[in-house]
């Protein structure tokens, strides 16, 4: 902290605009309703995730064919995977978040790809396809656990 730091009181704060209690105040029911809204959006989420998977497949295909700027394509894969990671758990698909995170971690370190990396990306994208096609919500239960364990094994091997 510099010697010249200055403390300023903001002109307004939220307390002047919020009332505590009374009708319309947030209560446990309101929180419950809001969580329910999220649960109701899960079906829509499947369709959005399918759109994201099309983008992922497209970037994967170009990477595999060696077309275009590899760094840019990898950034594209990262962006979609990062979105899917953030959305998954928010819509009740925690397993998608876990796999999306693994894909992010893989591609964020890469500037270019060779056959090994292509294979690893393929494995993660396949897993994401399975999660959506089988609608594996939450941690995916025993199927989810198997999928994650299988992923680890395959990625280690490749």
């Amino acid at each position: 902290m510099s010697d010249d730091s200055e403390i300023i009181t903001p002109p307004t704060n939220l307390q002047s605009k919020v009332q505590k209690g009374g009708p319309g105040a947030v209560d446990l029911d309101a929180i419950e309703r809001a969580e329910q809204v999220i649960a109701n959006l899960a079906d829509d989420y499947i369709n959005w995730a399918k759109e994201d998977l099309v983008k992922l497949e497209d970037a994967y295909k170009k990477l595999k064919e060696g077309k275009g700027d590899q760094k840019e394509l990898l950034q594209g894969v990262f962006n979609v995977a990062h979105d899917m990671k953030g959305q998954g758990g928010s819509f009740g698909f925690e397993l998608m978040t876990a796999v999306g995170d693994k894909l992010c971690r893989l591609v964020e370190k890469l500037d270019k790809v060779g056959p090994k990396e292509i294979e690893k990306i393929r494995i993660y994208v396949d897993a994401m396809q399975v999660i959506i096609s089988r609608s594996l919500k939450g941690d995916g239960g025993s199927e989810g656990k198997q999928l994650l364990m299988g992923l680890e094994v395959m990625v280690q091997k490749s």
């Binding site: 809204v37 999220i38 959006l41 979105d83 953030g86 959305q87 819509f91």
Partner: peptide, 17 residues
């Protein structure tokens, strides 16, 4: 920049009044 996440946050805020 993700319209789905915007929709989600908006829905949550609406439900919170």
């Amino acid at each position: 920049d993700n319209k789905h996440m915007r929709a989600l946050v908006k829905s949550i805020l609406h439900a919170l009044g």
